[in-house]
Simulated assay, not measured.
Amino acid sequence: MSLTGDKEPRVIRVTCVADADGRLTFDLPLPAPDGRPHLLLKARPRKGVADPAARRLPLDATGDGRGRAVLEPLPALEEGRWDAFLVREPDGEPERLGSGPLDLRVLVDGARVDRPSPVAVRIPYRAQDGFLALRTWLRPAHAETDRIEVADRATTVTARLHGAEAGDGAVVRLRGRESSAERTVPASTDGDGRDFRFTVDHAELTGGDGANVRYWDVDVLPAPGAAPVRVGRVLDDVADRKHSFVYPAMRTGGRLVRLYYTVDNDLAFEVTTSG
């Protein structure tokens, strides 16, 4: 955008509405209806990825001086974080779009709908700098946490599988991050093989070959030999859970054990020295 005197460029704000089918609709003031503008979604750079993915969505005039772009459920976006831009001309410079109102009501109860494989999720959100962004997940299967009960000596988690089913011999695996340490606990299943429950004894994470492990990541193995499925919570309207869903640290000997959500909304345990 051009500057007028010393004024900062005006940020265009876009509204976004999510529907039950996974479709996202973006509305914003249409700056040049004859310039073939489009909305650009661009993945943030990741380590080892030289050319981040991008998705271009045409902006169609709605007749009220605004434009509308639609992101269909398929094809799914790659997992990561995506920023939204306005491109006024086919070869124009991308301009970051500010976040206006976000209508994400249909996402609140998203965990109640069983998802097929692959499990594709996208959550629009207002980034800390005020711009519009998307948080996306794309995995062969996913285990969505539900009830979490933290007690003095153990933590019990209830979850539901999406894109997979649990059979005989299902276990939950806790792996030390950057470590070979590993623990397994039984996954108690019921109903249709999707719901399961497991309990982690805090003392199991503080001794033996895990005595120096600080972080334990949580997967479920639905059957012997099956690929691990990450346990977390992504099927609602919360893009970042780490600092908003906080669980107490419980003292175990001279250590503190705390369940938490990672920056990817995955479930993990942290073990620290007790003060």
Score class of each variant (00 low, 15 high):
Phe85Asn: 02
Ala84Trp: 08
Trp82Pro: 00
Leu259Ile: 15
Pro94Gly: 03
Asp217Asn: 10
Glu79Val: 06
Ala159Phe: 10
Pro124Phe: 04
Cys16Leu: 10
Tyr247Gln: 11
Asp60Val: 13
Pro186Arg: 05
Tyr215Thr: 14
Asp109Cys: 05
Asp237Pro: 01
Leu74Ser: 14
Glu178Gln: 11
Asp91Ile: 00
Pro116Ala: 06
Thr155Val: 10
Ala84Cys: 15
Ala76Arg: 09
Arg10Pro: 02
His38Trp: 08
Thr184Gln: 14
Lys242Thr: 12
Ala211Asp: 05
Asn265Gln: 12
Gly253Tyr: 05
Thr189Arg: 00
Tyr261His: 15
Val200Lys: 01
Arg10Met: 10
Leu24Asp: 09
Trp137Gln: 06
Asp264Val: 11
Arg177Asp: 12
Val108Pro: 00
Gly67Ala: 05
Thr155Gln: 03
Ser99Cys: 12
Pro58Arg: 10
Phe269Tyr: 14
Glu270Ile: 01
Pro75His: 11
Tyr215Pro: 00
Arg160Gly: 03
Arg66Glu: 13
Val106His: 04
Arg194Glu: 04
Ala159Met: 08
Gly100His: 08
Ala32Gln: 13
Ala50Lys: 09
Arg96Ala: 13
Leu256Lys: 14
Asp83Pro: 01
Ala84Tyr: 08
Arg214Leu: 02
Val257Ala: 13
Ser99Ala: 14
Ala111Gln: 12
Arg115Asp: 07
Leu57Arg: 06
Arg44Ala: 09
Ser179Val: 00
Glu93Val: 14
Ala50Gln: 04
Pro116His: 01
Arg10Ala: 14
Leu40Cys: 04
Ile12Glu: 09
Arg258Lys: 15
Val87Cys: 11
Thr62Trp: 00
Leu57Asp: 03
Gly100Thr: 07
Arg194Thr: 09
Arg55Trp: 01
Ala69Asn: 01
Asn265Ser: 13
Asn265Ala: 12
Pro58Gln: 10
Leu107Cys: 05
Val49Met: 04
Thr155His: 02
Glu72Gln: 11
Ser99Gly: 03
Ala249Ile: 09
Arg183Asn: 06
Ala154His: 02
Pro37Lys: 03
Asp192His: 09
Leu71Cys: 07
Leu256Glu: 15
Pro9His: 02
Pro222Ile: 08
Pro224Glu: 05
Leu267Asp: 02
Leu57Pro: 03
His38Tyr: 15
Glu89Lys: 12
Val220Leu: 04
Ser117Thr: 15
Val218Trp: 00
Val17Tyr: 02
Arg55Asp: 00
Pro58Ser: 11
Ala227Asp: 14
Asp6Ser: 12
Ala164Asn: 05
